[in-house]
Design a protein around this nucleic acid. Structure first.
Lengths: 105, 105
DNA sequence: GGTTACAGTAAGTCATGGCTTACCAAGAAG
DNA sequence: CTTCTTGGTAAGCCATGACTTACTGTAACC
């Protein structure tokens, strides 16, 4: 529920690659690591972060664990970005740009 | 034009704090650093990253530089997140979750 | 012109985290 | 029951980057 964690998770290129590889097709850890350049334990660690951020969901209690994209995980970040748009005050910051040489700035 | 840089820029808490402090009100570097816990040079460095990511714009060639939020900087990332929604294939990944025990997985 | 204030740069330090190899646990298959 | 496959954990290494102090440059003000 924290968009901060989502940003942290999405900041890493490898993690984005995993998420991209996962979108459209749920995969096991083995399948994921074969499509990535890093080792399998590295993928596991990244998946832990992604799971902690709520970006992926895992199923299968057995020896095979299937990971898939959890679409809802991006909702909060999406809303956060939206808030920057709806921010009316944001508009007048552009106005300030023109008042550059204000003496009493 | 790269949402990767935006994600990297937004991943840092201090940078988010600067951006938050900047939203709704354009500020000089001095004003920013006084509202932040880190030193002024640190703020300068962060502003460079934010500027590189296209998240802020700067005006004032003089000794006073006014930074403001550049709303457009978030557009690409916003669209990127949108693409996860429109991804039809994303839907069937949820379906796969139920077929967990597939033997030929 | 000299001084002061503001801001960016440089250099160096330290912590965070991403990756690897090695190991451990658990279920499937024979 | 033994063996193999699968995946998470631990420990350690190394690179990245965030922060600091010190310095430099530039514009405003006297």
């Amino acid at each position: 529920m924290a968009y901060q964690e989502v940003l942290t998770a999405l900041a890493d290129p490898t993690r984005r690659g995993i998420l991209e590889s996962l979108r459209g097709q749920a995969k096991s850890v083995g399948e994921l690591s074969s499509s990535q350049t890093v080792s399998r334990p590295a993928v596991s660690q990244h998946l832990k972060v992604l799971h902690g951020a709520g970006l992926v969901s895992v199923t299968g209690d057995g020896t095979k664990r299937i990971y898939s994209v959890k679409r809802d995980g991006l909702t909060e970040l999406h809303s956060y970005l939206d808030s920057y748009w709806s921010d009316v005050l944001c508009a007048f910051s552009e106005e300030v740009k023109r008042k550059t040489g204000e003496k009493d700035a």
